[in-house]
Amino acid sequence: MPFVRREIATTPVVSKAPDRSLETHLAGLSSTDSEARWSAARALGGRADAVAALAEALATEQVPRVREAIMTAVMRVGNEASVLALLPYLRSQDAGLRATAIEALQALPDAIAPFMPKLLADNDADVRLLAAELVRNMPAKDATRILCDLLQNEQAANVCAAAIDVLAEVGTRDAVPVLQACAARFRDTPFLPFAISTTIARISNTEG
């Protein structure tokens, strides 16, 4: 048979993982070699003492896969500093970067919760729209309350649509009155009353 089997005890299939210090990895983040930056970001995943350096590297990193690795590394820490490092990318002009930031932040529902009121009141409608998406992984009651607060005063139809889409999945019937009011407010924007009627049909039987 053409198959060869390398026994780990003699000639390992595996090679020993390199063991480097925090300083070495931090230095790797600013290497001119993208492979070294990638490896450094991967090695620093989950290290709270590296978040500041990761955030700094993220601001200048141009290679998409290295940016992803930095965001994953920051996400794995999952504390307030991680959220602060990722939030600026909700304003990025690069759609890929925005999407990666959203995914990373969505994985941190507890850490992002204290930031939600400010994000949902942001002057930039695009930030409010993305913030509505961040609510999707939160517990149903919290998500419903946060999105209802938004819908009560939101003037941008697209932001309302994003919130309504999330409510259709995670909302409870407590959102029905706010949704009805929103439909009345946007009666001249036909897609919103339609989306709202679909959402109400889905959540009216839920427990409040």
């Binding site: 991967r42 995943g45 992803e68 690795a69 994953t72 996400m75 794995r76 995914e103 990373a104 969505q106 994985a107």
Partner: peptide, 9 residues
């Protein structure tokens, strides 16, 4: 989602 990102990397 988080585990999938890590697994992919």
């Amino acid at each position: 989602d988080a585990s999938r990102r890590i697994a992919a990397e």
